[in-house]
Structure formats: structure tokens, C-alpha cells
Simulated scan of single mutants.
Amino acid sequence: MADIELKRLKASEVVLKASRLARLVGHTELTEFLGFERSGYPTDGSARPWIGRSGRWADKEKKTFHTSSIAKVEAQVVSAQQAIDAMRGGGNYSGDNALLASRRHDERILQSSAVFGTWAGICGQVVATVYDMITEIYHELLFSELQASLFADTQERVDGALAAASGTALEKIERISDRLRDGDRESVSQALTTCRRLIDSSADYVFPARDELYKIGDEVDLKVGPQQVLNRLQAHTHACGASKSRRDRLRRTLSDLYARCSAGTHAEVTIGEARFIFLQTYIALGEILTLSAAPEHGDS
């Protein structure tokens, strides 16, 4: 990116360096585009998506375009520039044909300038296209690194919280993972049953069942007995001082997940959906189990 931004490389050099990048990251589209730029464009229509992006249309209506490799395009730029430089000083014309000779000289300069503009424009467009694509790669890699760091930190905290919530919690997660890898219907059903039990054990840990109602504000009284698993988790988030919007989001999420886990026992959940249900359950429970006891700002 810096080489392009600071114009340290010619277009052909940018293409070669970007080709190595494309190979290292396995970027199929960039590899295809740079292959055409290195070797030239075929006329069978296979390169059509890249013709416009590289500024190579000669006449779009007639479907004619410049097929030369980027190295040959650069050679045309140099040739046109040399022709312009050679004619830049003008000529000493005299006699009856002086005006005609001068006009032809100017026409040749204009023609060379037009040729220069065409080829230089292709070089610029190719570099711009490469820059756009490697910028996307850069941001993807940057996000992936950040994402991996966030996931690793979150997983460490969540695993620790789940281990504290239930001595067998992590073993349950391992069983869920194994069953989902099996991929058969019975395994999916068993995995989601285990997932539901994980929610139950987390509720037992953070908010054991009580006979008395739990009061939220002046109007809401929650039953928090042994069967009211979701109510007890909601009571826990309230006791931790989570804002109402956060409590509501977690309540809706866990309610939906609990329902889908129950549906999974009837083999109504696909393998793909089961995997997402497990991941969402893991994340939602992790957020609840790692809530700070300190009250948050916001309504209570």
C-alpha cells in the first residue's frame, strides 16, 4: 500500500508485488486479475469483468479493448512520451508549406499525447484497482487479527466462568461439539438437550431457586422457583445492575435459544442451525456469567 501511495513502483512492479501478496493470502479474484495483467487479456470473454476495472475498453459498444500485458502497456507509455519530447521543441518551417508543416507537427503531438493518455490511463487504472483490492485484504487481515484476539480473550473469560458455574460445564461443551460433528439427527437432538441443561446449570449457579418473588422495579414480580430458569437468569442480570436494554436483549436471546433447544429434541433443527444455537448459547451465557456486580449506568 505504501509503495502505491508514495508512487515508488511502476505499474508492472505493482502487479508483480501484488501477485505475491495474492498468492500468500489465497485471494482468488486478485490472482485472476493480476494473471491477465501479467500475460495479457484473452478475447474469449473470460476476462470481461476486469476489462472495465482496468480501463481497457477501446470501444465498449463494439466490444473492442486493449489486450496487451501491463509491461507492454508501460512500453507504449514510454514510447509515446519519447515521441512527445522529440517534437516538443517544434520545427523551423519556412516557405509556402510552412503553415501546413506546422499544422501537421501539432497534429502529431496531439496524436502522441492521445496515445500517451490512453496507455497511461490504463496503468493508473490498474494500479488503482490493485490498491482497492489490497486495501480490502489489509482491512480483512486487521479485522481477523482483532477478532482472533477478542475471541481468545472472551473464550478464556467465558470458559473460566462456565467452569465455576458447573464443574461439568466444559465437559458438556465438549460433548456438544462432538455430537454436532457427528451430524446425524439423534446427535443434534442430544447436543441441544445438553445445551439446554447448560443453561439450567448456569441459572442454578448465578441465581438459585427461591420461593419468594423477585421484584424488578415497582411493577414486575418474577417467580424464581426451580422451573423458572429464564426468570432466574433475568433476576441475576437485574441484581448485577445491567441496564434495562441489556437485560431485555439477553432475556429475548435466551428465551429464543431455550425454545430452539427444546425444539431440537424433536429433530426439527438442522445441523447448521444447531451449531449456531450452540455458539449463541455459549456467548449469551458467557455475557451473563461475566457480568460485573457493579451497577451500570442506566435504568434499573
Rank of each mutant, 00 (worst) to 15 (best):
V77G: 04
G95C: 02
S177V: 14
T129L: 11
D159V: 00
Q76K: 09
V188W: 04
D299G: 08
S69Y: 04
Y214F: 15
A71N: 12
K72W: 09
H27D: 15
I199G: 05
V126M: 01
P208T: 06
T67V: 15
Y138R: 15
K223T: 14
L24P: 09
L150N: 07
G298L: 05
V220T: 14
A2S: 14
G272N: 14
S177W: 08
Q111F: 11
A242C: 12
L213H: 14
T28Y: 06
G52S: 08
L291I: 05
V14G: 01
T28C: 05
E171H: 15
K63M: 13
L6H: 13
E107I: 06
K72S: 11
S243K: 07
D256P: 01
E296R: 07
R104A: 09
S300L: 08
G183D: 07
A164P: 07
P208Q: 03
R88C: 06
K63E: 15
A164V: 12
H238V: 08
L257P: 00
T290N: 03
Q234P: 02
R210S: 05
L198A: 04
S12C: 13
R246Q: 12
R249I: 03
S68R: 11
F276R: 13
V206M: 08
N92V: 15
L150M: 13
E287G: 04
E61T: 12
P42L: 00
A86Y: 10
K7S: 13
K223R: 14
G52C: 07
A235Y: 00
R175Q: 15
P226W: 00
S39T: 11
K244S: 08
A2Y: 13
K63I: 10
E273Y: 01
A58E: 10
A71E: 11
L222P: 00
E287I: 13
F143H: 06
C240Y: 05
D248H: 06
L99A: 12
R88P: 03
I4W: 01
G124I: 04
A22D: 01
A165N: 03
S202I: 04
L222Y: 01
E186I: 12
Q228H: 13
G35L: 07
F36V: 10
E273V: 01
S166Q: 03
E171W: 14
L192G: 02
I70A: 01
A293W: 08
R249N: 07
S292C: 11
T67K: 15
R251Y: 08
V14D: 01
Q190T: 07
I271G: 03
R197G: 15
V126G: 00
R232M: 05
L100F: 12
E186Y: 13
Q227R: 11
A235F: 02
A80V: 00
D106M: 12
D256L: 12
T135H: 10
R260V: 03
W119S: 02
R23V: 11
A235R: 00
S149M: 09
V115Q: 12
T281V: 07
I176L: 06
K63Q: 15
V77D: 04
L285T: 02
E32W: 05
V78K: 14
S292R: 10
D221N: 15
P226R: 10
S112C: 03
A148L: 14
I137E: 08
